[in-house]
Design a protein around this nucleic acid. Structure first.
Length: 170
DNA sequence: AGCAAGATCGGT
DNA sequence: CCGATCTTGCTG
């Protein structure tokens, strides 16, 4: 078993987000096994982060972000794109990492389209699932950071946080 | 019950 | 730059 253990995810999202870069996202369907390196992520951190959905408080949608890390937070945006997020941190500490890009596929909407991920993955456990997980991978991940994409509504403080992490191919 | 907006993308 | 498309959370 080469999967990342659950306690890997149960630390602060700002620590985990860059750690996910270069790891292998595996998706298994009846007739396919997809393996992609994670190349781009964003961190969403706590109720005070106005860009994080948890800033609206604990609702049916954000419920899973309040759980222990290692499960998936999935939601639909703009009526057509599923967003794939990995919940991190501990109970009652809502945070998640948005997977924005994998090898050869850029854009969070394209990631879920390529891997056939939808609402049915909400709450999926990355250690116990038989259809999606993340594997360990040796590797120094060089990366750079930028502000997060598409969150201009979040106000000066939060929209400028350098919480987008992009793998650097040197 | 109704409405505005959104962690996007592809086509003009 | 604009339209597609629908869930969510807020307002009344």
């Amino acid at each position: 078993m080469n999967r990342l253990p659950l306690n890997f995810y149960q630390h602060d999202v700002l620590e985990i987000a860059p750690e996910l870069l270069g790891r292998v996202l595996v998706r298994k369907t009846d007739n396919q096994l997809y393996r992609y390196k994670i190349t781009e992520v964003e961190a969403y951190r706590g109720e005070e982060d106005l860009a994080c959905h948890a800033s609206k408080g604990r609702t049916m949608r954000t419920e899973i972000m309040y759980h222990n890390g290692g499960v998936l937070y999935i939601y639909l945006i703009y009526g057509m794109y599923w967003m794939l997020n990995v919940v991190t941190g501990l109970n009652n500490n809502p945070q998640a990492v948005l997977i924005r890009g994998i090898e050869g596929i850029n854009g969070p909407g394209r990631v879920t389209k390529a891997l056939n991920i939808d609402k049915s993955f909400y709450g999926e456990n990355l250690f116990f699932s038989n259809r999606i997980w993340i594997e360990k991978n040796e590797g120094n991940s060089c990366y750079y950071t930028t502000p997060r994409i598409g969150i201009n509504y979040a106000g000066e403080i939060w929209k400028n946080k350098p919480w987008r992490f992009v793998l650097d191919n040197i």
